[in-house]
Nucleic acid binder design. Structure first.
Lengths: 262, 262
DNA sequence: CACGCTTACTCGTATAGACGAGTGGGCAAG
DNA sequence: CTTGCCCACTCGTCTATACGAGTAAGCGTG
């Protein structure tokens, strides 16, 4: 095994007032940034770093936890600590709901993912009527109950997005929208067939750390935030006809918007 | 001092295979969610929790570090651990660069913040020519050097955003754009005066954990991600005339976009 | 009254040790 | 050769202890 003294990592500065575990984290971070440890590569084990720096194990673990919080590394029980690989990113363009993209039988997610050479998958579909949350009710214009469509999207087996659509019952009940599979073009195509010509969307974007439940459903590594997107669809009469609440693994997405300068 | 046995926190389940520090974190998280501990309020001290649960201090600290990673609490040396208050949020609407908002003498940031009753502030302004990064060069169409305008925005004394604008030298050099204060309406007004009629913007949005440098300049609490926004401005001839790279404290922003359904 | 010191309480850093549990390779038995 | 066990190595959890350093309030001194 190659010794750590081979130069990858330096020494501690005992005169520095920077905490030892921070100095170690700094050195590891720099080594990662410089590409000395590449994506997916294993870092030195805790024991090796204990030997190299002459500190206690908890100190080394403390360093790792700093880097984990930054989303730089992740630990695997029984294997080691690894540089977190940057997954393929899904680009969401602002024209992704344009009518011209609504022709095919497959969902936008599926089409786009296959074009990018990934294996898409949709699961945990749940469609049911329920009480509207205060926020959803406000966005939809004071409706009491709604149809909720929940689904999770996976890319190459990895969950990347969890979304729930809420629709007023007077629009959705008894229509294909209330079916698990709403048919080609998705619920937006069905809405237009039902006479609700879509006029525009409004999207609100936040970023935050995930709740424990979100960590579970999206199988998030520590140090990965989520993008929380809330889209409201309005028809040509100005009525809100759908609210879609989406939580995305932030490391899997880039959102892209085109804005007029007028 | 009120005893912790007053019911705020429960007991541990020794039969559970959930780690003790996770159980403690769960109980604290639930108490926070239920509002038993309010925003800004102090949680029980480490010593109190040690007594209450009968565990060692490191175990309690481990619980706190979980909650810190979730952005729920923050520790203050010598004082205690507090529920992290949700700061006032700045809303960025997609029409914020419309020409009609470009009339006044003050910057959009200043106008908007004062309207919201906050005290805005802009500092660390740096304007200089420099070598374009590979990414900026690609976005601007293979320029070698650029004018960089760096500034930091504060709201009520708290840094919330750090932005750098990059402009091709052939456009910006020797113009008011190269001055620390470009004048009323900002650099977009100057660009239009110089004959570059703005046509549209493209914005790319990512979310991630901050680098150590970003933690410093934005004075970020741990567990707060950043929103990374890269805007490219195009003139009516289709030329990219500015790239603006912005890093925002995610807990201080909601981005809002209006999309046509066409 | 005002100032400065002491003191108690807070979290921060670090050590040393123990046991548990997941992983994977090697080796021995069948 | 295959199967299954063992073992070495990995990280996960927890304890107990020690000292440092920031904070705030009280108390005594001038």
């Amino acid at each position: 095994m190659p010794s750590l003294s081979s130069g990858l990592l330096g020494d501690l500065d005992p005169t520095s007032d920077r905490a030892v575990f921070r100095q170690i984290a700094d050195q590891l971070r720099e080594a990662i940034d410089r590409g000395r440890f590449k994506e997916g590569e294993k870092l030195p084990s805790e024991a090796e770093l204990v030997d190299h720096y002459g500190v206690s194990r908890m100190t080394v673990r403390n360093s790792f936890s700093v880097l984990q919080g930054e989303g730089l590394v992740h630990a695997e029980h029984g294997k080691g600590v690894f540089v977190r690989p940057r997954p393929p990113v899904r680009r969401l363009a602002s024209d992704r709901f344009a009518r011209r993209h609504r022709e095919q039988g497959k969902s936008a997610f599926t089409v786009e993912a296959e074009a990018a050479g990934s294996h898409p998958q949709v699961d945990s579909l749940e469609v049911k009527e329920e009480k509207a949350s205060q926020d959803v009710s406000a966005r939809l214009g004071s409706v009491r109950r709604v149809l909720a469509r929940r689904r999770r999207y996976l890319l190459d087996g990895r969950p990347v997005e969890f979304a729930t659509s809420y629709l007023p019952l007077d629009i959705a009940r008894g229509t294909p929208i209330a079916e698990p599979n709403p048919g080609p073009g998705g619920i937006y195509a069905r809405l237009e067939e039902l006479g609700h010509r879509l006029d525009h969307f409004e999207e609100e974007i936040r970023a935050r750390m995930p709740s424990p439940g979100e960590v579970r459903t999206l199988r998030l590594a520590s140090g990965v935030p989520v993008i929380h997107l809330i889209r409201t669809a309005y028809d040509s009469e100005g009525r809100a006809v759908e609210v879609c609440d989406t939580v995305m693994a932030a490391d899997a997405y880039v959102l892209s918007y085109q804005l007029p300068a007028t």
